[in-house]
Every structure is written in structure tokens, then in C-alpha cells.
Write a protein that binds this DNA or RNA. Structure first.
Lengths: 216, 216
DNA sequence: TTTGTCATTATGTTCTACATAATAAAACGT
DNA sequence: ACGTTTTATTATGTAGAACATAATGACAAA
């Protein structure tokens, strides 16, 4: 029944055009209006609290608030409980994102961004250990996401990253041989400096080709 | 306190490598183990039920199950309660997706897919009413997502679509004049038939340029 | 005016009780 | 001895009361 109440509450907020900051009725009133016990109402409210949709303070009551858009998503992103197919789908989703970033990046990149990337690339040249390589890889691609100036996309990619790495690790464990890309971070950076969005897309596709080879 | 219990439960499942289908301890046992009342445990469990992480049947007890990966996301996607900036971020996110699809589409497209697209395009020629145009637009782009064979990406775009439309409608309401793209669905279809992924990316970028013009 | 006390109010937490459904065990009749 | 019915048990679902806690405001005293 908490299911129903939760849904009805959300519909109620939507129907009455509640906005973040607006106070919502107290638990007892809701319980009476919906003809359920306060207990059930609290279960439903607890769900919405998890999503960040409502906040509550003693005596002051509860207010609607802006939810954490990926809060629920984050809680559920566990490689152990998701199906293999879903994990692969998410792996591809991150690839798609990465390939689609070019135009946003070229729209918003700044000189400071280029300098940051140069620092990251310069560090990568004298690295041997695999764990450091992975960290450098993450730093470079993470910076690309940051350059879009889109906080939501960046958060999304941060959440997707562990899944991506998990899928790669699983495939390697099963004997997948990843070829080394002919396009390096240095090449990508060069295009960011002097090239076009179109060239960047092509280069990024080539850079990620080892992953694409394993898709089909 | 439901917050804490919910987190501890998830950690408990993860630590003990619980998999979908595994039975989990009963409410009373959890309550005792965590030193809280059964009520608090039920609030936490109710949250996880919302995410689809657990299912419960009377007497049989509760089992862990595969969560709905976008369940929480879906509940929160209301234009009225999200910040303007977040809405714009999501608008861009969908643009990025659309631009990144090309390689997956060319990897997996079938003759049947092309036929389906041709049907959709042929219907669009003799349409005047705006509402039908929008529906046709959705059908065409939705089909593109479907062609990736990636159910997760498709679901994600379905969720994002209403937000995308909301943002477009809001901008038009504020006097934004959308120029008409020089690349039509017909052009895109032609490239799908006889062109390359690279050409498709370029064409899609041009097709979406009216949206990009409003970004900066 | 300031401070202190007290009543009030709404959420947070616990406990008890009972309903409900599914399962197992026991009792019963033929 | 077999199958059917009844009964008991168990775990979740729902309700309600009780008390704790914290924030607020009102009133009174210094």
C-alpha cells in the first residue's frame, strides 16, 4: 500500500503544482486524507526523502525540495546485482556519450581547459604501472566531460565509470585481448587545439576502437 | 535513521555478495541486528522495494531482486520541480546521446530497420498539423534509438524525451525562433542506406543545428 | 528590552495488536 | 493406507497508541 500512497503523493504534488520550498501537509492530515495509517504514510514519505524530493524538520513540518536526479540511479549501480546485459548496455551508453561530446566541448572549451589537459598528458608519458595508467586515463576523459560545462552529464559519467571499468575487467578476465589504439591522448589534445569538432569525433572513434572491436 | 539503516542494508547485501533471488533475513532479525524498531527497518525496506531491489511475499519472506535501473530517475523527472539548469543539462544530454549513436547504429542496423524508417519518412511528407509533425519526429528518432539494440539507452531516451520537449516549448514560449534544419529525415535515411557512420554524424549534427544555435 | 519558563506542535521512534496469506503439520474419514 | 480437511505456525501488512525530541511562540519576570 506504500506503493499506492507514494504514487498518490507524487500525483498530488504535481497536480497542485507544488514547487521546491513549499510546505506539504503534515503526516496525520495525509494519513486521514488517504485513509491509511500514519505508518504507511511515513513509509511513502521515507521513499520520497530518499529521492531528495522532500525534507523534514521537527515542528516546522516538511517541505518539497529539489530531488537528487541520479540519487536512485546511484544506489542501484552494483555490478553484482545487475544483469550482464544491462551492464553491457551501460558500457555502450558511456561509449555513446563519449562520442557525442565533441560539439559541446568545442562549443565551450577554454584556454585553461587546454592547459589542464596538457598537464595530464605530460604526466602520462613517464608512467609504467597499470594502476597509474588507469588513473591517468580517467583524469583525461574526466576532464573532457568537465569541459562540457554540464554538471549533470559529468555526474552521470562519474557514476557510469565504475561499471565501464568492471565490464572491461571482466572481458579481460575472460581472455579478451585489447589492442592498443593508434590515436593517443596527445593526438586528441592536438585536435582540440588546432582541429575541428568533426576531426575530434573521428579521432575519438579511433581512440575508442579497441572497445568497439569487442561489440559487434 | 531510516537513512542509516537503508545504507547499512545495501552495504550488507554487497558485502555478503547477495544475488538476485537470494532470500534476505526477516524484518525482526534485521531490526534486532541493527538495534532499531521493526518500523524503521520497514521504512528502509520500503525504499529498496521502490527501487525494485527487493520483493516480498507473505510468509515466504523477502528476496533480493534485480532493480529497475531507471526507476528512481523516472520518479524525479518532473520539469516543475527540477532547476532550470538541470533541465538544460538534460536537454544537452539528449543531444549528446543523439550525436553519439551513429557508430552503434551502423554496427547493428538491419534491412528491416531501414524499411521501418522509410515508412515513417513517407508518412511525414503529407502532414501539416504541428502535433502530428512532433509525433512523426518522435517516431523517427525513437526508431534510431531502437536500432542500437540497446534497451537501456532506449529507455533512457524515452525518459529524457518529455524533458527535451518541455525545454524546447519553454524556449519557444520566450520568443526563440527555431530555424529549420537544412538536413531532413530523408537525407539521414539516405546516408543510413548508402553512407558511412562518419557522414551520418555530420548530417545529424546539421539536422540538430537549430538546437545547437541556441546553446552557446 | 531581555531573558527565562512553559505549553504547543509536528516529526522521530518504539511497542503492541491484529489481519492476511502461505506453508506445514496434524487430524480425520472413507 | 491414502487423500482430504482442519488447524497451527510463520512472516509480512496495517493500524493505533504512547512517548521522545526539537523547534516555535507566548507569556511572565527581572
Amino acid at each position: 500500500m506504500a506503493d499506492v500512497v507514494e504514487k498518490r503523493l507524487r500525483e498530488y504534488f504535481k497536480k497542485n503544482a507544488f514547487r521546491p520550498g513549499d510546505p506539504i501537509p503534515k503526516e496525520m492530515e495525509l494519513a486521514e486524507a488517504l485513509q491509511v495509517s500514519r505508518n504507511v504514510v511515513r513509509e511513502a514519505l521515507s521513499r520520497l526523502k530518499m529521492l531528495g524530493m522532500i525534507e523534514s524538520k521537527k515542528k516546522r513540518g516538511m517541505i518539497l525540495s529539489e530531488p537528487d536526479i541520479f540519487g536512485g540511479f546511484e544506489r542501484v549501480l552494483d555490478p553484482l546485482i545487475l544483469e550482464q546485459q544491462t551492464l553491457k548496455d551501460l558500457f555502450e551508453l558511456r561509449l555513446v556519450l563519449e562520442l557525442g561530446l565533441a560539439d559541446l566541448i568545442f562549443l565551450r572549451k577554454t584556454d585553461k581547459d587546454i592547459q589542464d589537459l596538457e598537464k595530464i598528458v605530460s604526466k602520462s608519458t613517464n608512467i609504467n604501472k597499470t594502476s597509474f595508467k588507469v588513473k591517468n586515463e580517467i583524469a583525461f576523459h574526466g576532464k573532457l566531460y568537465e569541459m562540457t560545462g554540464n554538471h549533470t552529464i559529468m555526474r552521470f559519467q562519474t557514476l557510469l565509470m565504475p561499471i565501464f571499468e568492471y565490464v572491461v575487467a571482466e572481458e579481460e578476465k575472460q581472455g579478451a585481448a585489447y589492442s592498443i589504439s593508434r590515436i593517443t591522448h596527445i593526438d586528441l589534445l592536438e585536435i582540440l587545439k588546432n582541429g575541428s569538432a568533426g576531426q575530434f569525433k573521428e579521432a575519438m572513434r579511433a581512440h575508442l576502437s579497441p572497445h568497439f572491436e569487442r561489440l559487434i
